[in-house]
Computed example of a mutant assay.
Amino acid sequence: MKNSTIILILILTTLLLILPVSVASQGYGNRFQGNQNSVLPEPEDLNLSDTERSDLLFMREEEQMAHDLYMVWYEMYAIPIFRNIGEAETIHASEVQLLLDRYQVPSDMIGNYSSGYNNPDIQALADALAEQGAQSLTDALKAGVAIEETDIADLDKAIANTTRPDIIQVYTNLRNGSENHLSAFTRQLS
């Protein structure tokens, strides 16, 4: 029991140290401050296809859902992984919001956990995962795995639906972050 507690504390401490560095190195840090970080390529035009517009709105709300559920589970179980990854999801949402703003796509219909989500698929997923996560810490960690696996699959589809370098760059950064989150949840479950 003592050894497993020590190992858990070491893992959580490592995550606290690695996650912020990992997130910053993937372009989630101060992207637009000075020349030290990458800058998104300028679009040739602002006319998105209907699919690109839909994908941006969907990804924005999906990132919001991930943040919301992780914060709910952090309140329930008080383990840092939920808070840390929840905070990273806030950054992910702001990355997508930057694209929505850049392309002048209204995002006033983006929902949240307390008011409900605009997209019925996201609402259904949030309801199912919130119920799962409320069962136990292990179930919440498994729900975190499901969120990240879903996010990766959705990002892959969204990447395939565009040729715009700025959108692809953001989606790729988000996908890399989701891979890191998935690994962190998987480690917690092993």
Results as ranks from 00 to 15, higher is better:
Lys2Thr: 11
Lys2Met: 12
Ile6Gln: 15
Leu8Trp: 08
Leu10Asp: 14
Leu10Glu: 15
Ile11Tyr: 07
Ile11Ser: 13
Thr14Arg: 10
Ile18Ala: 12
Ile18Trp: 04
Ile18Phe: 04
Leu19Ile: 13
Ser22Asn: 13
Gly27Thr: 12
Gly29Asp: 04
Asn30Thr: 14
Phe32Arg: 11
Gln33Asn: 09
Asn35Tyr: 04
Asn37Ala: 12
Asn37Asp: 05
Val39Ile: 07
Val39Trp: 12
Leu40Gly: 05
Glu42Phe: 10
Asp45Cys: 00
Thr51His: 03
Thr51Ala: 14
Ser54Phe: 09
Ser54Tyr: 04
Leu56Val: 03
Arg60Tyr: 10
Glu61Arg: 11
Glu62Ser: 10
Glu63Cys: 11
Gln64Glu: 02
Met65Glu: 10
Ala66Ile: 07
Asp68Ala: 03
Pro80Val: 05
Ile81Arg: 03
Ile81Asp: 03
Phe82His: 03
Phe82Arg: 06
Arg83Glu: 02
Glu87Arg: 13
Glu87Tyr: 06
Glu89Pro: 06
Ile91Tyr: 01
Ile91Phe: 02
Ile91Met: 06
Ser94Phe: 00
Val96Ser: 03
Val96Gln: 09
Leu98Gly: 08
Leu98Glu: 12
Leu98Ser: 12
Leu100Arg: 06
Pro106Glu: 06
Met109Pro: 00
Asn112His: 05
Gly116Ser: 09
Asn118Asp: 01
Asn118Thr: 07
Gln123Gly: 01
Gln123Asn: 01
Gln123Ala: 10
Ala126Asp: 03
Asp127Met: 05
Asp127Gln: 09
Ala130Val: 05
Glu131Pro: 09
Ser136Arg: 13
Thr138Asp: 14
Asp139Trp: 00
Lys142Trp: 00
Gly144Ala: 01
Ala146Trp: 00
Glu149Gln: 15
Glu149Gly: 03
Thr150His: 15
Ala153Ser: 12
Leu155Asn: 07
Leu155Arg: 09
Leu155Pro: 12
Ala158Lys: 09
Ala158Ser: 14
Arg164Ile: 13
Pro165Gln: 02
Pro165Met: 06
Ile167Gln: 06
Ser178Gln: 01
Asn180Leu: 11
Asn180Ala: 13
Thr186Leu: 11
Arg187Cys: 05
Ser190Trp: 00
